[in-house]
């Protein structure tokens, strides 16, 4: 058989066909709201975020400190063992500079790009990262391996949410030397 010998199905429409009513459509807005139980581990995680701390959970068998905390170790398949506080600093595992919103709409000209990152939290086992945002940093200064620190909401404004951490920012301001390197790199790029 060859695909070329068949008349294939699938009738393409333009979005204007729908807007102008060239074809009939019906629409639906689901009105579903949820209340997801936090459970024990994430419940404690959120409660500690409200206190301005990041908490993990240990597994004695594989010797890991896990972030986000979980009540069982998915590798050893046994109950996890102990609560342990981690630092609110970490290392950028990877990052992106994002010009679109969650629904694929474009960010406006005056809206700065979002900088999501995977941050390996200090005090947790190597490679244990969480998704969060970077800010107070020039996108050109970010690189994999950058040390960062959490910027928290004021205690009174915290609600027990991952957003109690506003974002992470570089642990240290870029040194003079780094600034000079950057300038040089920029100039080189321009020449190219």
């Amino acid at each position: 058989m060859k695909l070329e010998d068949y008349e294939l199905g699938g009738t393409p429409l333009r979005s204007s066909d729908i807007k102008k009513g060239n074809v009939l459509t019906t629409s639906w807005e689901p009105n579903l709201a949820y209340a997801w139980d936090d459970g024990v581990a994430i419940g404690r995680y959120l409660a500690e975020l409200k206190n301005g701390r990041i908490i993990g959970r240990t597994c004695y068998k594989c010797n890991r400190i896990m972030i986000p905390p979980r009540m069982f170790c998915e590798l050893c398949f046994r109950p996890s063992d102990e609560w342990v506080y981690c630092k609110d600093t970490g290392i950028v595992n990877t990052f992106s500079i994002c010009h679109i919103n969650w629904d694929a709409s474009r960010r406006g000209p005056n809206e700065p790009p979002l900088i999501p990152a995977v941050i390996e939290i200090d005090g947790a086992s190597k490679g244990m990262g969480i998704l969060h945002m970077l800010s107070e940093v020039d996108p050109d200064d970010i690189k994999v391996g950058l040390k960062v620190k959490a910027v928290w909401k004021n205690p009174g404004e915290r609600t027990g949410s991952i957003t109690d951490i506003l974002y992470f920012k570089p642990l240290r301001a870029p040194t003079k030397r780094a600034k000079a390197t950057k300038k040089r790199a920029k100039a080189t790029r321009k020449r190219k």
Partner: peptide
């Protein structure tokens, strides 16, 4: 994750 990630308004492209 609805509790630890969705509040950051992620997009899949991230």
């Amino acid at each position: 994750d609805h509790t630890t990630e969705q509040p950051l308004k992620p997009t899949l492209i991230w």
